[in-house]
């Protein structure tokens, strides 16, 4: 119960930070609010037993904040001048409310934790535990957990999955990172670019 209450408090904090980030007039405040949400997420990762994720989230968050602050630091006064369309905002809020209601009833709604099979498993009972929901097969995670030590010799199941059981996924991830860095470099380079009339 204690952990669940802490998670609820942290998610509410993230929600507040997200709303502040989207509605603040100063771009620097927005970026810092999103950073606060990211650090709250890393604390949530710690609480639900994912220390690897918490460490990665902190590192990624710091780099992300540096990039975003670099983008907004000299252009801070922009946001106040850009007002959003009222009709569009209203319609969007309506659509978001409908979406939330649909998700609520799809998750089992007022029936509480007795959601039908085939939806997200109830909180605290992952697919690999298959406690009350005997109809759902335990999935592949159970085998990963039982075979981690004997098959790979690693003691950390997450790194065993990343680098042994699903190493090709990690290769794909490295490819995506390489391509995105290449793209960012191509967009920002100074050398070899033709003169532009419009640029200040």
């Amino acid at each position: 119960m204690g952990v669940e209450l802490l998670i609820v408090i942290l998610i509410v904090f993230m929600l507040a930070a997200a709303v502040i980030a989207l509605e603040a007039d100063d771009l620097l405040s927005s970026v810092i609010a999103v950073g606060a949400a990211g650090f709250a997420l890393s604390v949530i990762d710690l609480l639900v037993g994912a220390p690897d994720l918490a460490i990665t989230q902190v590192v990624v968050e710091v780099i992300m904040l540096v990039l975003l602050i670099r983008a907004v630091l000299k252009r801070r006064d922009e946001a106040a001048a850009i007002s959003s369309d009222l009709l569009r905002t209203g319609l969007c809020l309506l659509a978001c409310g409908v979406l939330l209601a649909v998700v609520f009833f799809a998750l089992g709604g007022l029936a509480g934790d007795d959601a039908p099979d085939g939806t997200i498993p109830p909180f605290g009972e992952p697919v690999l535990a298959n406690g009350k929901r005997a109809a759902v097969p335990p999935g592949v995670s159970k085998q990963y957990l039982e075979q981690t030590v004997s098959e790979t010799g690693a003691v950390n199941a997450v790194t065993a999955i990343l680098l042994d059981f699903r190493a090709y996924d990690t290769l794909g991830e490295a490819t995506v990172i390489f391509v995105s860095v290449l793209g960012a470099y191509a967009l920002l380079r100074r050398v070899g670019r033709r003169k532009e009339g419009l640029s200040p």
């Binding site: 990665t56 990963y144 990343l162 990690t170 793209g183």
Partner: peptide, 22 residues
């Protein structure tokens, strides 16, 4: 706890960084 979503999310976090950079 289930290690499989954690491994996939670890990949996703790092890809999110690449996305932000771009």
């Amino acid at each position: 706890v289930d290690p499989l979503p954690q491994a996939m999310v670890l990949t996703s976090i790092v890809i999110g960084l690449g996305l932000t950079a771009l």
